[in-house]
């Protein structure tokens, strides 16, 4: 792909085609509009030039013309808006059963945690044809996850999760850029997205021994003492987390919110902000105590508690009780 002088970026995701189509439409439309205006200016400039001894004809203006050239562009603009919004809506709504990859950005590298347990730095392996949802956070400043070949970009913020998704369509190695200025080596915060055939991907997955992410989370859940209060058998001092993810929760200030990833995250780090109704704000603060990777593992574990015993399609790992060894503390510094 490293041609010396490309004029069009690679197209390697299901999103890319739609974006390119609108871009080409805009290019054509705006090109025509620009050329029309330039030609008019050139023709007027030549035809009515003063050196020919012309006298100007005074024209006051025309309401009909003004309304036309306000109204017609407005209608066209609304069309472009709807088209652009439709693409964006798709880009912002990950399909239900996407495979999830947790991402931690930091100055100046990308760290990925696969659900299967593999961890990568500045390299992301994904298979063709699977919806992949990136659940991303930053441990320092704002970064932005940008894969030009997929036409997707999403800022990665400290203190919360943001989400991007894609479905790769073409095997190859593509640029991953940080697109939000993040300090000294911003331009060095780059990597590769490696899109593989499913079979090769399976082979890659089986490459190294690793505990599934939710499994790591479970270990943490036990070792940090979460399970003393968050019990599954009887009502503990904290809410029962079984089937808690993505359900509505009533808070003690009367609001009802959805227990999404960001809520889980916030409730681990600063638990007193949104306390579930009927519970006391007694949970210790974990901000600064656990790493972003550990937090991801915990969130992945709590989410995995939603699965029915027989397992759900699209996720490959279910947390069974069999421990596979000590959870690896993922301090990639």
């Amino acid at each position: 792909m490293f041609q010396t002088f490309p004029l069009w970026p690679e197209r390697a995701s299901t999103t890319a085609g739609g974006v390119d189509a609108l871009f080409i439409f805009l290019l054509t439309l705006c090109g025509l509009m620009a050329i029309m205006i330039f030609i008019m200016i050139l023709v007027f400039a030549a035809k009515y030039r003063r050196s020919r001894g012309r006298e100007a004809e005074q024209i006051e203006g025309s309401n009909a013309l003004e309304l036309t050239w306000s109204g017609v562009p407005l209608v066209i603009f609304m069309g472009i808006f709807v088209w652009g919004a439709a693409i964006y809506f798709k880009e912002r709504t990950p399909p239900q059963d996407s495979a999830e990859i947790y991402t931690v950005a930091k100055q100046w590298m990308w760290k990925f945690q696969h659900m299967e347990g593999q961890r990568e730095i500045n390299e992301l392996h994904v298979p063709i044809g699977r919806d992949v949802k990136m659940i991303m956070t930053s441990q320092d400043v704002i970064h932005s996850f940008y894969v030009p070949a997929f036409r997707i970009k999403q800022d990665v913020l400290p203190g919360r999760y943001t989400v991007a998704w894609f479905r790769a369509t073409k095997a190859g190695r593509y640029h991953l850029f940080c697109a939000e200025y993040c300090g000294t080596s911003h331009s060095g915060m780059i990597g590769d997205v490696v899109v593989m055939q499913p079979a090769q991907y399976e082979q890659w997955l089986s490459g190294g021994p690793a505990a599934p992410l939710a499994q790591t989370g479970k270990q943490l859940f036990l070792s940090l003492g979460c399970s003393t209060c968050h019990r599954f058998d009887v009502q503990g001092r904290g809410p029962n987390l079984m089937n808690a993810y993505n359900r509505p929760v009533l808070l003690d200030d009367g609001r009802t919110i959805t227990a999404d990833e960001n809520y889980l995250r916030e409730s681990i780090l600063t638990p007193a902000v949104k306390v579930v109704s009927g519970f006391k704000p007694i949970m210790p603060i974990f901000q600064g105590i656990i790493s972003e990777e550990q937090l991801n593992a915990l969130v992945a574990y709590i989410k995995s508690l939603n699965q029915s015993p027989e397992g759900t399609a699209g996720t490959r790992n279910t947390p069974t009780g069999s421990p596979t060894g000590q959870p690896q503390m993922m301090q990639v510094q």
Partner: peptide, 20 residues
């Protein structure tokens, strides 16, 4: 030219790719 390319950037789907 500057104004017309603004139309590209205001189009949400395209902006995601070309912003920044």
């Amino acid at each position: 030219m500057g104004g017309l390319t603004g139309l590209f950037l205001a189009a949400l789907g395209v902006d995601v790719h070309v912003t920044d």
